[in-house]
Design a protein around this nucleic acid. Sequence first.
DNA 1: CAGTTGACCTGTATT
DNA 2: TAATACAGGTCAACT
Lengths: 149, 149
Amino acid sequence: MLFEKVLTPSDVGRLNRLVIPKHHAERNFRPFLHPEAAAKGVLMNVELGKGKMWRFRYSYWRSSQSYVLMRGWGRFVKEKRLSAGDLVRFSRSILSSDKQLCIGWKKIDKKKVIGGRLAAPADAGGGQVVIRLFGVDIFPGKKITGGGG
Amino acid sequence: MLFEKVLTPSDVGRLNRLVIPKHHAERNFRPFLHPEAAAKGVLMNVELGKGKMWRFRYSYWRSSQSYVLMRGWGRFVKEKRLSAGDLVRFSRSILSSDKQLCIGWKKIDKKKVIGGRLAAPADAGGGQVVIRLFGVDIFPGKKITGGGG
DNA sequence: CAGTTGACCTGTATT
DNA sequence: TAATACAGGTCAACT
């Protein structure tokens, strides 16, 4: 497991984007925003067991200093019926030798949340798919010096 | 003096933007939205007597066909404690040889407004600062063709 | 042309 | 108290 996030209303709303907490992004997703990686794309595969591919555009917003998943995220939220309070978890696949990046989701039954804590393990559905991130920006403070890379 | 505007509730509210009346914008601010000017920035200086720089993003909204000051405006309103009915005035500095663009503000004491007219000259504070506008859009109907000018 | 996407912005909570 | 993170927002280009 790399990290997980409790989805905010904005993460599942009409903005169609997921904010990746900065420290998690910089610890775990650093390679995906290197210029070279951004140009090629990084990881690609299909949904485990179902054959559906998921791709997300991963980007950095200079103005708000934040990392986000954009394109593809809204469709994911819709298909998985995610809502505020649900969980997403990023991890490396243990099933494949190349440790593909995965995203897992878990519906949280809000009726079971008591005093900010879950009264029972979430069991309202969930799953995990291998994903592809492709970056389109570089890390802040780094200059694009031209071609090379 | 170029022109002045009585601030509306929207100009000082949460929208953080000042609508520049179109005829004033096109008469006085035309250069700031030329592509060339937009790339370089146009005017820059510091607040007279205090050393603080003010910059505003100047833009044209196609959807509403209006010219607006955006980024920076909210902070200006807050710092100067402007409210609806107060005045802002745009002018060219007479103190500098390069005729820098200035914005002045004047608090209007609403208690002195009688029947829509001021009962006395505004005296509740005010001032003037040199500002920088930088455009990020071009005039409607003009295409950016690349380099040129 | 309406919905989606991309890029930009800001107030507020937190540090 | 100054700086930062980010939830929530905007407009515009693209589809």
